[in-house]
Amino acid sequence: MEMFQLKVTAIREVAAGIHEYTLSDPEGGDLPAFTPGAHIHVAVPSGGTRQYSLLNDPAERSAYRIAIKLEAEGKGGSTSFIAATAAGDSVEVSAPVNDFELRGDGERIVLIAGGIGITPILSMAQYLLRTAAKPFEMIYLTREPGQTAYLDEVVNGPLAPHVTLHHDMGDPANSLDLAALLAEQNGAVLYCCGPTGLLHAVRAASQHWERGSVRFEDFGTTPAAPAEDEDGFQVRLEGGDQSYWVPEDKSILDVLNEAGLDMPSSCESGTCGTCRMRLVEGEADHRDLVLFDDEMDDSIIICCSRAKSREITIGFPA
């Protein structure tokens, strides 16, 4: 992945434990264009890169703005970046990539954000407000006001007439009634970003919506379900003689790529469907947000789903 250097020109805390970074060209030039929902890869001091959504309006070409939540129980990427990065520093980033693109279909747009998932949703909302491309509404769900990034902007700024803000104060009994909210589709297309629990709740509440009209991005803030296959399982490609062992700490996608098969993938979180394969034999443990109930008998998303049987056979889509 090709990376380039940007300068941190501003830092501000936008909620408890959430810091916004403005990244600009050191020479003051325009940055590569991006579309609403895009993210960049950012090198972090602890090693490797992390993906962060661009939260500003794509019309703003002078800077990329990202918000990073301090994840004390994460892998150290956010902690190391927040601790070590100051205004004036250089950071290494990639060109923007978009696995969560705001498309032109639908009569209206519903945006749902949970917690730090506000970042790509905020970019989408600013774009829709500026262009008047579609009627839209934004639902923003957080635990409490102090943990709500961009609270003042969404309550008092130009977006306010379009925003429903809901705090559950940490009590599931205070959760927003998503089933009632999504009871009628009425020509809408829905974009949802947030923790895995919210995505599953939205998926359940929108099962009756037209296929392809509900799109997700997962910030991975909810721990993945533990593997039921503690010893792993075998995966076989249809028509081949070789089987591959999938241990509990790797995905089917990881194993097949390591075997040199170069499988198609994009989000690697079970939200985009790029790595969808046919399920030929065996029983799958579905963990994605792509497949509808009637597709689960003969399809599998290999970046996140696993096997309940000791062996499964998969094949490329027809």
Rank of each mutant, 00 (worst) to 15 (best):
A33H: 13
T79W: 07
G270A: 10
D249T: 08
V14Q: 05
E92R: 15
A38M: 09
D293C: 05
F4R: 11
V91Q: 04
A204M: 08
T35M: 05
A113D: 03
V255W: 01
L159T: 04
R287T: 02
Y21T: 01
L289M: 12
L190A: 13
T131V: 01
I11D: 02
L129V: 00
P58T: 06
M263C: 02
G77P: 08
I66S: 08
A201C: 09
E153P: 00
T79S: 12
L128G: 06
E210V: 14
G104Q: 13
M169I: 04
A83P: 09
G29A: 13
D293F: 01
G117Y: 01
R278I: 04
H19S: 14
I118D: 03
G104L: 10
L237Q: 04
T119F: 10
S78H: 02
W209L: 00
L237H: 00
V280R: 09
R236L: 06
S175V: 01
A149K: 04
N174W: 11
S123F: 09
P317Y: 06
E230D: 12
G29E: 09
A125T: 01
A87M: 13
L23Y: 08
Q147A: 14
S269V: 15
A33P: 07
L178E: 00
V93C: 09
T119V: 02
P36R: 05
G146D: 09
L237A: 03
A307Q: 06
G270T: 11
G17P: 01
K69R: 15
G47T: 12
R103Y: 05
I312R: 08
L182K: 00
L253A: 00
D254C: 01
